[in-house]
Amino acid sequence: MSEGTMQRAAQSDQRDPRTKRAHRVLLGAAAVPLMLVATACSSDSGSSSDDNAAGAGQSTESSASVSPSPTVQAAAYKSLPDACDTLSKGTLGDLVPKASKSGKQGKSDDVATRGSCSWSSLDNNGVKGSQFRWLNVSLLRFDSDVTRGEGDKLAQEYYAKQVQDAQSVEGAKNAKTEPVTGTGDQATLVRYDLKKKEGSFKQQTLVTRVENVVVTLDYNGAGLAGEKTPSADTLAKLVKSAAKEAVASVTKANTGGGGSGSTGETSPSPSASKSASKSASKPASPSASPSKSTAKKS
């Protein structure tokens, strides 16, 4: 292009302002769609974020609303037999031969969970002295609880505590502890000598657990007023036999086999003891049980 031509074009632009205005309008019109597109994208992005946040909140609330309630396995045994009916007349005749026909039951505010019965025997031989025997059977049943745990676990803890208490009696001499097989799910015998003013007592405490029930038998004997002290081995053999029978009574009461709680629904005798921890009744004899209570509340 010649210099003259270029000069004329420049002059033409200067002379015609409409050309410049049209140029600016075209540029502005092109910018508008770009702004609209940017605004739309920004708006869509915010809506998506809000929707996602709302969805997450609803999911959390839904998850919380369907959370399952805590559960615990139900206890196996629902009732107890009458404590005074746990042993047969023949067994009682061996352990407490001169006892009254019926045992002495304690009071209870919850007969479905605790009971006890005691028997005392005094074979008076006049100037030759007397043979004394005392027996107490305590029953304690544990229900499952969502805060405390399963019934059989609670029974295991109480069983261990009962054994420990029997091993820590003040004044006990020649103490021995031995496991007992074939009796419930767990069984332990604690035996020792205890000197009292009336004579030398041979104490046997057998603690056994079957499912969610703990059975504690306290049995002791003494020769009074010069009578010969009974054999600890003989007493131990007798209490082991009685423990098996007591466990069988508990099982029978919860399996429809008869007894005061034979259906697993029927409540035992209202004369069951108030507490396994206070079940040991004082025998009407020269001496009460020499051991401290081995049936305390859990």
Rank of each mutant, 00 (worst) to 15 (best):
Gly257Asn: 01
Leu189Glu: 08
Phe142Thr: 03
Lys176Pro: 11
Lys173Leu: 00
Gly55Asp: 13
Ser63Ala: 10
Gly199Lys: 02
Ala280Leu: 11
Ala160Gly: 08
Pro290Gly: 06
Gly28Leu: 11
Cys117Val: 02
Val37Tyr: 00
His23Asn: 13
Gln156Thr: 02
Gln58Met: 01
Cys41His: 14
Lys128Arg: 14
Ser262Gly: 05
Ser293His: 05
Thr183Ile: 03
Asn220Phe: 12
Ser42Asp: 15
Ser262Arg: 02
Glu150Pro: 07
Gln7Trp: 09
Val163Ser: 02
Leu122Asn: 09
Leu224Ala: 03
Gly149Lys: 02
Ala53Asn: 02
Gly55Asn: 13
Ala9Asp: 10
Asp165Gly: 11
Val169Tyr: 09
Glu150Ile: 04
Ala54Phe: 08
Ala236Val: 02
Ser200Lys: 15
Ala64Lys: 04
Gly106Glu: 04
Ser63Asp: 10
Leu224Phe: 03
Pro68Gln: 07
Ser269Phe: 06
Thr251Arg: 05
Ser267Thr: 09
Ser231Met: 04
Gly149Leu: 04
Asp165Gln: 14
Leu235Ala: 01
Ser249Lys: 02
Lys173Ala: 05
Leu135Thr: 06
Cys84Met: 09
Ser62Arg: 04
Ser102His: 10
Lys128Gly: 14
Gly199Phe: 05
Ser293Tyr: 09
Ala40Asn: 13
Thr263Phe: 08
Ala166Glu: 07
Lys296Gly: 15
Gly256Val: 03
Lys195Glu: 14
Ser241Ala: 12
Val72Phe: 05
Arg15Asp: 08
Pro68Val: 03
Ser168Asn: 14
Ala243Trp: 03
Ser62Asp: 06
Asp193Ser: 08
Ala38Phe: 11
Gly115Val: 06
Asp152Gly: 08
Thr113Trp: 14
Val213Glu: 03
Val72His: 05
Ser281His: 13
Ser47Ala: 08
Glu198Phe: 05
Arg18Met: 10
Lys202Phe: 06
Gly46Gln: 15
Ser130Glu: 12
Thr263Pro: 10
Leu27Ala: 04
Thr255Arg: 09
Lys107Gly: 04
Gly103Thr: 02
Pro70Met: 11
Asp109Lys: 09
Ser43Ala: 12
Gly4Gln: 13
Asp16Thr: 02
Ala54Ile: 03
Gly264Ile: 06
Ser130Pro: 11
Gly182Glu: 00
Gly55Trp: 10
Asn136Phe: 11
Asn136Lys: 11
Asn212Cys: 07
Gly106His: 01
Tyr77Val: 10
Lys161Ser: 15
Thr216Leu: 09
Ser231Thr: 02
Ser293Pro: 06
Gly46Lys: 15
Thr216Gln: 09
Ser273Pro: 03
Ser120His: 00
Ala187Arg: 06
Ser88Ile: 04
Leu235Glu: 03
Phe142Trp: 07
Asp82His: 07
Glu150Cys: 05
Leu26Lys: 15
Ala99Pro: 01
Ala54Asn: 04
Thr255Lys: 11
Gly46Ser: 14
Val25Phe: 15
Tyr159Phe: 08
